[in-house]
């Protein structure tokens, strides 16, 4: 039955898959295409699929003539810091949700859900004022704190899912074998959640790497700008230089895409219950 259905059904399936891939990749392709188009051809050959000559000049000038590297470094600090602290905090919280029954659990879960519901922009003004009061305006530390808080609830639910997939028996066996709860966590549970940790780290990194509006609000000096904010200033500073901007964009894509490609498998696995079974 499957054999006879193969030609038509499979062809349609592959066609559909090809369309999805095309739709997903074309805009990214276009970004790179503009980045490698020489400035003088940008308008004359703007709509061509591939320019008649191509150049890496834009990349060179972005790297050496603009503040790009500063923005890149700031974004790296903020995104890695956010990913690290969020995962740390969310791992502890997710573990508590997964392994303990305690008074107040439902309330805390409800509060965390609420943070996922309201418009974050609603608190942009109060946060601005609070950060000003704490002298954390225009500082990368302030940005890391805010991003970490924003991402902890989702990361906690994600980590809880990973912990739920690890049988409770394992850490009980470890505790009988001589572990404290904490050594059981470190020696038995932790190695088994590594895929989950990777997924969470990558997910949060990508989110922090992309955030624009809070960074715009909270950062204003040039040497503190993260990548999205810095790129926004390209629009005014280099208003005509599309090529440079796209070159900068292409470079900015690299870390988040690399991270994402590495972790997307774990993400699907992690959301599927019971990923870790002997």
């Amino acid at each position: 039955m499957q054999k006879t259905a193969f030609p038509l059904g499979a062809t349609l399936r592959y066609l559909a898959i090809a369309l999805y891939v095309l739709f997903a990749l074309f805009p990214i392709y276009w970004l790179i295409k503009i980045a490698v188009t020489p400035d003088r051809l940008i308008y004359t050959e703007g709509t061509q699929i591939w320019p008649s000559t191509f150049t890496l000049d834009n990349f060179v000038s972005v790297l050496f003539l603009t503040d790009f590297l500063v923005y890149f470094k700031n974004s790296m600090i903020v995104s890695l810091g956010t990913a690290f602290f969020t995962t740390l905090v969310a791992t502890a919280a997710g573990y508590a949700f997964s392994r303990f029954h305690f008074r107040g659990k439902a309330i805390i879960i409800a509060l965390m859900l609420i943070t996922q519901m309201f418009p974050l922009l609603m608190i942009i003004a109060p946060i601005y004022k609070i950060m000003a009061g704490l002298r954390l305006l225009d500082s990368l530390t302030g940005l890391i704190i805010v991003y970490t808080a924003f991402n902890v609830p989702f990361a906690t639910f994600l980590m809880q899912g990973f912990f739920d997939g690890i049988p409770k028996d394992l850490e009980e066996a470890a505790m009988i074998d001589g572990c404290t709860r904490f050594t059981a966590l470190r020696k038995v549970i932790f190695p088994l959640t590594l895929p989950g940790l990777a997924a969470t780290l990558g997910f949060i990194f990508t989110a922090a790497w992309s955030e624009l509006l809070f960074a715009l609000m909270l950062i204003n000096s040039d040497d503190k700008m993260t990548f999205p904010v810095g790129l926004k200033t390209f629009v005014s500073k280099f208003a005509v230089d599309w090529g440079q901007m796209m070159a900068a964009g292409t470079l900015a894509l690299i870390p988040s895409c690399l991270f994402f490609i590495l972790i997307q498998r774990f993400l699907v696995k992690g959301l599927t219950a019971g990923a870790v079974k002997g």
């Binding site: 009988i176 572990c179 870790v276």
Partner: peptide, 20 residues
């Protein structure tokens, strides 16, 4: 007393072998 201080060993229904 914590489990580790009771000088006991336990065999679980699921075996609970450490997969890694």
């Amino acid at each position: 007393l914590e489990p580790r201080d009771r000088d006991i060993a336990m065999v679980f229904q699921s075996y609970a072998l450490y997969p890694h």
